[in-house]
Design a protein around this nucleic acid. Structure first.
Length: 905
RNA sequence: AGGCGCGUAGCUCAGUUGGUUUAGAGCACCACCUUGACAUGGUGGGGGGCGUUGGUUCAAAUCCAAUCGCGCCUACCA
């Protein structure tokens, strides 16, 4: 016997453990290949709403295709996340008072591995709670031997092909982490600052220029002052020299188009070693680069002694003070400008001239653009196609070296003369180039995204030509967020095409971001994070508040978060269960929009689970389901109708999933289960208007259709209603396909008539305030009473039951009585109401209906009297409007005559 | 500055190539109903004319233009 209420906690963990133990997720060997590569979560990561959302969609596709009897591989794995991981472990060591450099590289890396073994797969445990059908016995890690081999091979091959080079270039430098980062890892945002105006005297002391700057400390590295060539104010000064204050240097005044005369004074100080634009300008004008900072952004020996070793911000104050003391500070005012910060460290990024390794993305981009432009790779939704192509058109070379320890060490070796050799290993290099001299390996590691860009094929054994790769590459679809379209997707396409000659995937489904109820990004710092596991298991208000304020140091901030959380979740969060969460994600996943996560939705779908549960409970209370093996051919109307409807549903679902419309998929199921199967079919079945085998079978079909999105509840019910001989696992069941011959338009039409009739009677009952328990006598008629009589004789029992009637019959005479009247399609309905009727309210009601019809008739008439319309619109549209007009006019006259009867009383 | 996206019921969103409803769903709301699948329920109901203004068309929430508001991305003014 099933419980009265569905309780997800009782079944989810138990079922998942069973699935995993039975190796249910190991790919079957036969069938068409279907493959999705899981975007590898960060090894430091915790499961957040974004994962839960994307993993749900992927799992729907995976389970669906598994049931379609394909040979399905969902390759999972974990990303070593260089910077993030190193930060975590460094912080832990720091708690013990140990610094990374005290340990040394080798020991430190050992520590990281230890940490990885301990806590690195906490996210995979969380993923299991989502019901993901991943084969956990076969995972990849980007630092594993096999994968590493792929990384080294890729590097080496790209180098040979001239697509990787080492060069002195201006890069984004994170002074806190002491490493270069790529331009994508820099986040610029407006911050309050100050704009200072400094006087630079001319070398001959005849005059001075005033420059404006937000970064005074860099003036120590200035090598020019630039003005716009057309700027009349300064034209005469171009070519002269300026005595750079605080230093003994003189620097030229140059003219360059880049200068914006309208900003500040129109004079720009140029510091080629510390600014991207200045660097370019320096190259154009052959200016020297003077590096004034150390790697940690303290001032180096190139600056006057008084400023040395100062941090840049300290130096800023000191420089300002020194200039002020010399009377060279003209003025200063508040100024907002964009400050670049490191994505991970949040430190202000310094442009820095260093030697780094680069991928010539500019060269690789063309093929990657083409693949998407000609739809070899289909991006869904299409709007992202433009974004993708646009970025690649303007792509810059990609800085891939990082001054870190955790990651793939760059396979490049230097001989004592500094000559570079690239290979797979030192032995490989020695052999390949015949080297005897000592070799020193490059100490840098590769950007984590470099290894990630090989994900689709490196996981399948590349560079070895494995059967696995032959079978599953190119993969079928990549599901990922737009936020890593450039970081990852574009780079994967470039790498895959160049290295394997194949596209990495046939489609990309780009998801939006899961946001909070105000559309804000969820962030720990904002205290608005929802944990998917809390939605599944529930959480008390107290615990939620504690969780959200745990990382907050400031009191007022914590109070704000607390207040907000208590207001939104006064009772905490109910345990909605995984299935409800997954269903919510699907139904919210409409194309290309961010998701404002609405707690009301998941609550609704939790109720939906309960509805389904209870429907099954009813079925099991009526039929010995497991013994039902043969399904009879539908005879009675309700059966024919539900069979036809469920067939329609199959078509809708196939279309929805083929076009990645997970919202349509979810909505179709919801509508069918609740509003067709439960609301109507079960009610018919209660009065024996449905055959038990169809009752059971329809439920079975629904469970199969539901399984990809709601794996737990579907399976739990399945075990109770399945034919005895069938597998316990829905994943082993074939996914039902539409069978056009099961459509029964006649039954659909007739059932629609019946529904309309029942609804009309209920409507009248409600309007006149008649108790739902009072059985009514009802009369009906239509223009074809003979046909009506046939229908009535077949369905009167059913109608009487659905509408609570004591009798229903065809009766012309009833018109003259005091009645409530309604129209159901071509059928008029009267309910005699001797004592109940309120003349005024009935008359008012009829007036309202008539008024509505007036409007409708006027509207339709307007169209038909327009000769343009009848001439140019398709005939079927015109004909349709004609019929609608006729029917409206018919209804109209019926109501008018009814109104007359009422008012004559 | 450039690009993209979005503005449809109180809220969250559908509306597929313009034409079968008076523009739909869920949640919320109102009324009635504790009838043996489900009150996590049932029945019925109210509520918007699709940001604004023009245009194309026989016909526009749907196509075009302008405009307002919001969001995001890219590049930036030192």
């Amino acid at each position: 016997m099933m419980d009265k209420h569905y309780s997800p906690a009782d079944i989810e963990t138990r079922l998942y453990e069973e699935w995993e133990a039975s190796k249910l997720f190991v790919p079957r060997s036969d069938g068409m290949p279907y493959c999705i590569m899981l975007p590898p979560p960060n090894v430091t990561g915790n499961l957040h709403m974004g994962h839960a959302f994307q993993h749900t969609l992927m799992d729907v596709l995976i389970r669906y295709n598994t049931m379609k009897q394909k040979s399905v591989l969902w390759q999972s794995g974990i990303d070593h996340a260089g910077i993030a991981t190193q930060i975590v472990v460094e912080r832990q060591l720091l708690h013990k008072g140990i610094k990374r450099h005290d340990l040394g590289r080798e020991k430190f890396i050992e520590q990281v591995w230890q940490w990885k073994e301990l806590s690195g797969d906490s996210i995979t445990r969380q993923m299991r709670r989502l019901g993901t059908s991943i084969d956990w016995s076969d995972q990849r890690f980007t630092l594993d031997d096999g994968f590493s081999k792929a990384v080294l091979t890729a590097f080496s091959r790209l180098h040979t092909d001239g697509l990787i080079y080492r060069g002195q270039r201006m890069v984004n430098w994170d002074p806190l982490l002491g490493t270069a980062i790529s331009d994508l890892e820099v986040i610029s945002a407006e911050e309050d600052g100050i704009l200072w105006y400094f006087r630079y005297p001319l070398a001959d002391n005849s005059d001075h220029l005033t420059v404006a700057t937000t970064r005074p400390e860099t003036m120590l590295g200035d090598t020019a002052v630039a003005v716009h060539p057309d700027d009349q104010r300064y034209r005469h000064l171009v070519g002269k020299q300026v005595a750079l204050p605080l230093t003994s240097r003189t620097i030229p005044i140059i003219a360059d188009e880049q200068v914006d005369s309208s900003f500040g004074t129109g004079c720009v100080k140029i510091t080629p070693a510390h600014d991207f634009n200045d660097y370019k300008m320096g190259q154009r004008h052959n200016l020297p680069c003077i590096n004034i900072m150390n790697a940690d952004a303290t001032m180096n020996a190139a600056v006057p002694e008084e400023f040395r070793d100062m941090d840049r911000l300290q130096a800023r104050e000191a420089v300002c003070a020194a200039l002020k003391a010399r009377g060279l500070l003209e003025k200063q005012h508040k100024h907002r400008s964009n400050i670049p910060r490191g994505e991970r460290s949040k430190a202000i990024i310094e442009p820095r001239l260093t030697k780094q390794w680069f991928v010539r993305a500019t060269k690789l981009a063309a093929a990657a653009i083409e693949a998407v432009e000609n739809d070899m790779i289909r991006i869904v939704p299409q709007q992202w196609k433009k974004v993708y192509c646009n970025w690649l058109h303007n792509v810059e070379d990609w800085c891939i070296s990082r001054q870190l320890w955790w990651g793939h060490q760059i396979p490049a070796w230097y001989d004592p003369h500094g000559k570079i050799y690239v290979g797979l290993s030192e032995e490989d290099v020695r052999q390949r180039y015949g080297i005897q001299t000592p070799l020193q390996q490059d100490s840098d590691v590769l950007d984590t995204w470099f290894s990630s860009s090989l994900w689709t094929f490196a996981t399948l054994g590349w560079p070895t030509d494995t059967p696995l790769r032959k079978k599953f590459h190119p993969t079928d679809v990549l599901v990922t967020g737009f936020d890593i379209l450039f970081f990852w997707v574009a780079r994967m396409v470039m790498m895959s095409i160049h290295l394997t000659g194949e596209i990495p995937f046939r489609s990309v489904y780009v998801t939006g971001l899961v946001r909070d109820e105000f559309g804000q990004k969820m962030a720990k710092s904002k205290g608005n994070v929802l944990d998917p596991l809390d939605l599944i298991d529930g959480i008390t208000a107290e615990d939620l508040v504690n969780k959200r304020t745990a990382d907050t140091m400031q009191d007022h901030h914590a109070q704000k978060i607390t207040a907000r959380t208590r207001q939104q979740f006064p009772q905490g969060i109910t345990a909605y269960g995984t299935d409800a969460l997954r269903f919510t994600f699907c139904s919210l996943s409409s194309i290309g929009r961010d998701i404002k996560f609405d707690i009301g939705r998941i609550e609704g779908y939790h109720h939906f689970c309960n509805k389904l549960w209870n429907a099954a409970r009813y079925v099991l209370g009526t039929v010995d389901a497991p013994s039902v093996s043969k399904v009879v051919k539908a005879q009675v109307l309700a059966d024919r109708w539900i069979v036809s409807q469920s067939n329609k549903l199959l078509g809708e679902i196939e279309r929805a999933l083929a076009s990645y419309r997970f919202d349509f998929y979810a909505q179709s199921l919801y509508e069918f289960i609740w509003h067709q199967y439960c609301d109507w079919y079960l009610e018919c079945a209660k009065v024996k208007e449905g055959h038990p085998s169809i009752l059971v079978n329809t439920l079975r079909v629904v469970l199969k259709l539901l399984h990809p999105v709601m794996p737990f509840i579907s399976e739990e019910i399945w075990r109770r209603v399945k034919p005895v001989k069938d597998s316990d696992y829905l994943l082993h069941q074939p996914f039902p396909s539409p069978a056009p011959e099961c459509r029964d338009e006649h039954a659909e039409k007739e059932f629609a008539w019946l529904q309309k009739l029942v609804t009309t009677i209920r409507e009248l009952r409600a309007t006149f305030g008649i108790s739902p328990r009072t059985a009514l006598t009802v009369y009906i008629r239509s223009s074809d009473n003979e046909q009506l009589g046939t229908k009535l004789s077949e369905h009167s029992t059913l109608i009487a039951s659905l509408a609570t009637l004591s009798s229903i019959s065809i009766g012309e005479d009833a018109r003259q009585q005091v009645v409530a009247t309604g129209i159901a399609g071509d059928t008029e309905v009267w309910i005699p109401l001797k004592d109940v009727i309120d003349r005024d309210s009935e008359s008012a009601r009829l007036h309202k209906l008539i008024h509505q019809l007036d409007k409708k008739i006027a509207n339709l008439n307007g169209q038909l009297t327009n000769p343009q319309f009848t001439a140019r619109a398709p005939q079927e549209v015109v004909e349709d409007i004609r019929q609608r007009l006729a029917s409206a006019q018919n209804d109209h006259s019926r109501f008018i005559s009814q109104l007359k009867i009422i008012s004559d009383l």
